[in-house]
């Protein structure tokens, strides 16, 4: 909410994803091969970060308390935040899209529309997770500390480095329960044209379920009277 006048944050939201993509393009000889991971993970990660810290700031500044006593329903309240942070995620996705085309020469085998669908479902999941975890953090430092606990394992196991099916069973099963796995699986099909259409729809279905579950959990927890 308070971000509208915060030009520095807005600038970072726009510039950072493009910069990261450009760096990858400079480092990798064949950047297109990693583009699907990059496109999925960057927005997921940044959306989590913005939501968790942003929502935490609402709590610590006392504005959330104010909003909680106002005649706004729980779902209306979370919808407001989802739309606000979702707008930022959408803008970031579009910046990434432009950067991927410009710096990585990505061709999007199955079209830009499907890319945005998968990207935004991933972002919505990250948003719900961000709100939920920020409710359990007492300060910004703790919200950041959730990254190595919650986000990093997903990136490591979710198919970034090794395909999920090649993992040992005790890693594969947890990986199958993580949203980033499906985000990368969906991106693989949409961006690189790997796999079958069925893989995409499994990924879309799983991400939609994660979105509903994480945002639903946020709704359930946000006005939990202490």
């Amino acid at each position: 909410m308070g971000l509208r006048g915060d030009r520095r944050t807005l600038g970072l939201v726009l510039v950072v994803p493009a910069f990261v993509v450009w760096l990858f393009g400079e480092v990798f000889g064949n950047p297109e091969a990693v583009a699907h991971v990059l496109l999925g993970v960057v927005v997921f990660f940044l959306t989590y970060l913005l939501t968790a810290v942003g929502f935490l700031r609402e709590r610590t500044a006392g504005t959330l308390e104010r909003v909680l006593v106002a005649p706004v329903s729980r779902s209306g309240l979370v919808t407001g935040y989802v739309l606000g942070f979702g707008l930022l995620a959408t803008v970031q996705s579009l910046v990434l899209l432009g950067a991927a085309v410009g710096f990585l020469e990505v061709t999007f085998e199955h079209g830009v529309g499907l890319f945005l669908l998968v990207e935004l479902l991933g972002a919505t999941t990250a948003l719900g997770i961000g709100i939920v975890l920020s409710l359990f953090a007492e300060n910004e430092f703790q919200a950041i500390q959730f990254i190595p606990v919650v986000i990093t394992p997903q990136v490591i196991l979710g198919g970034t480095f090794v395909p999920v099916e090649d993992l040992a069973w005790y890693l594969e099963y947890p990986a199958r329960l993580m949203p980033v796995t499906y985000l990368i699986q969906g991106m693989e099909y949409v961006v690189l044209g790997r796999g079958e259409a069925a893989d995409l729809w499994v990924a879309v279905g799983a991400l939609a379920a994660f979105s509903v579950a994480s945002v639903g959990l946020a709704v359930a927890l946000v006005r939990r009277v202490e």
Binding site: M1, G2, R4, G5, A61, G62, T63, E65, R66
Partner: peptide, 11 residues
């Protein structure tokens, strides 16, 4: 509230 409880980046 006791806290500042306004949005610093808005007017």
């Amino acid at each position: 509230p006791q806290h500042e409880a306004v949005y610093r980046d808005l007017t």
